[in-house]
Design a protein around this nucleic acid. Structure first.
Lengths: 185, 185
DNA sequence: CCGAAACGGAACAGCAGTGTTCCAATCGGG
DNA sequence: CCCGATTGGAACACTGCTGTTCCGTTTCGG
């Protein structure tokens, strides 16, 4: 039964994303429980904690990349592309807080999100600088930090307050739009 | 030597704020080392880890309150008060990431920052709604989330990139201003 | 200069998380 | 139905953090 293995493995990874998103220091026991799986079974699929973390970040990166692709960063004005990107990323849900909370302590060569941002992203922001939809004073790096922090803020805002998903997304888009807009004065 | 006790205690709390700001899961050994103090000495001042955490949050809250007072939230237009608040809070440095990263797992009655925000803060935002300097579509809660997330983003931006303190503050003020401004369209 | 206060190191038991092994129970396709 | 694959639980040793005790050393104040 090879299909069973894949399904169990996926359930563990999904549970890990969810649990680690809430608490990055969660134990393997917690993750196994969330996946409704014995701790023994978890170790059967992932030898180390590091091994599991590798799989988790791989899955998270895959979802991130899919969302990025769907946002079509190269199309339309800079600001509209940023807007689409926010919409797609917001749907990532707990992957958001996982990627945001991810400690750079791992220190392996794959620097990921934090430093040196995606060339497509940089291109999008600079296009916005030229077409007058993004404040030229804001470097691409900072726009990236801005988006991530606001998405994360929205995610936890939704979690603590009882605000609806849709309403929170509206607030995020409104404030991000305003933040990157060319200033009047 | 009573002055010595107070000085050592303060050194430990300061070091704890710094270390825990970077890594909320840091061990007591790490904190003691950062304070250039033996782990034994640390336990002489704080029985539990919980005890130390209490002192740390007390100190953080004190600094926070001092910064809040200096920002004079009740004066001037809503937006200008928000601006002053950002300037003061930015100076909090590592206290920022400590308060931001603080897990609500402690679950003690003192809810602190996360939920239900300060009445003065709410008043400031609503004043901004009326005087036309803050977008009336944005609830005070969200403005608070906004400010904290951007300050934290700026703090880590400064840490990872080599950007100067002053320049980062400029970026924060610019984007926060834009985010809360009344929208033209 | 002397004693008390403060400090740091070593050692210890306790605890939680980890990684491993072994075995019994269950499930599923041939 | 049956055999192999998959699973979960129990037990174990190991590690790192914690909280405590004890003792020798340093340092300040009278």
């Amino acid at each position: 039964m090879s299909g069973s293995r894949a399904r169990t493995r996926q359930a563990i990874v999904d549970a890990a994303i969810d649990v680690l998103g809430r608490n990055p220091a969660a134990s393997l026991g917690d993750i196994a429980a969330a996946a409704e799986v014995g701790r023994t079974t978890l170790h059967r699929y992932f030898a180390d904690r590091a091994d599991l973390l590798r799989a988790v970040t791989a899955e998270a990166d895959a979802r991130l990349e899919r969302a990025t692709a769907q946002a079509r960063m190269t199309e339309g004005s800079g600001a509209s592309a940023v807007r689409r990107l926010c919409e797609e990323y917001f749907d990532l849900g707990s992957v958001l807080s996982l990627l945001f909370t991810a400690t750079p302590a791992s220190a392996d060569p794959s620097c990921e999100e934090p430093a040196g941002c995606d060339p497509d992203f940089t291109a999008m922001v600079e296009r916005g600088h030229r077409d007058g939809t993004i404040d030229p004073e804001l470097p691409a790096d900072w726009v990236q930090s801005l988006i991530w922090s606001q998405l994360y803020a929205g995610w936890s805002y939704q979690a603590t307050m009882g605000t609806s998903r849709h309403e929170v997304l509206r607030l995020i888009l409104r404030t991000v739009d305003g933040a990157i807009a060319v200033k009047a004065a």
